[in-house]
């Protein structure tokens, strides 16, 4: 199994000329989960976006396996899946087509999905929406479709922005199960959240964006 190390060193980010966050540092390695917490507007989403290389950092750096992610030779995206708070779903496609589309973009077990899609749809209980257009789904169901992507991806690093929002209790528990599975298989998870569910995890890290310190 591949070893992966994420190191964020002194990250500082500006939007326009306003400071979003500064001097954020943490590291994360296989089998660890990081919760990014904090009030609205404290830069959780921005930090998460910068981990995916789509947000420019004013200062500091993000390294994956000791290679800066801005380095063109760092193919960190082949190990990383990002689900933003917009669900990356096409409104004009059905649930099934959307998952097929997302499947195409991830390094994933394609044949397994094509041959038995119901297995994946069942996990978040969205089988009955298989042929619904995504524009007809409720917010919570959209979220479930977006999160179903995690079921077939082979990528090690999951970067998720508010995955729990709009989810009902059952789906939350399913998601936590999924997280635990991924972590025991040596995956890494970075997620922003309002709800503290770190007690489910043995090795969880916790980043409070206001206090800017990490408690293990």
């Amino acid at each position: 199994m591949k070893n992966i190390d994420i190191l964020v060193d002194n990250a500082t980010c500006l939007r326009g000329d306003n400071l979003i966050f500064d001097n954020i540092s943490f590291n994360l390695s296989n089998g660890e989960i990081l919760f990014i917490m904090g009030p609205n507007g404290c830069g959780k989403t921005t930090l998460i976006r910068s981990l995916c290389g789509i947000q420019h950092l004013e200062n500091g750096c993000i390294k994956i396996n000791n290679v800066n992610i801005n380095n063109p030779e760092c193919n960190f995206l082949e190990n990383l899946v990002y689900i933003g708070h917009n669900d990356s779903l096409s409104e004009n496609l059905t649930t099934y087509e959307n998952l097929e589309y997302l499947n195409k973009f991830d390094l994933s077990n394609k044949d397994e999905f094509i041959s038995n899609p119901n297995k994946f749809l069942k996990f978040f209980d969205i089988s009955k929406y298989k042929n619904y257009l995504v524009s007809e789904l409720s917010q919570g169901n959209k979220k479930k479709v977006a999160l179903s992507r995690l079921l077939f991806t082979n990528k090690k690093i999951w970067v998720l922005d508010e995955p729990l929002s709009f989810l009902d209790e059952d789906s939350k528990n399913n998601l936590i199960k999924l997280f635990l599975d991924h972590i025991t298989n040596g995956g890494l998870i970075v997620t922003s959240t309002h709800i503290d569910f770190s007690n489910y995890f043995e090795k969880s890290k916790y980043l409070n964006m206001k206090g800017i310190n990490i408690n293990e």
Partner: peptide
């Protein structure tokens, strides 16, 4: 608005 551009740019494809 649907975040698909972000998805494109965070894909290794």
């Amino acid at each position: 608005n649907n975040g698909i551009i972000e998805m494109y740019l965070t894909s290794e494809k």
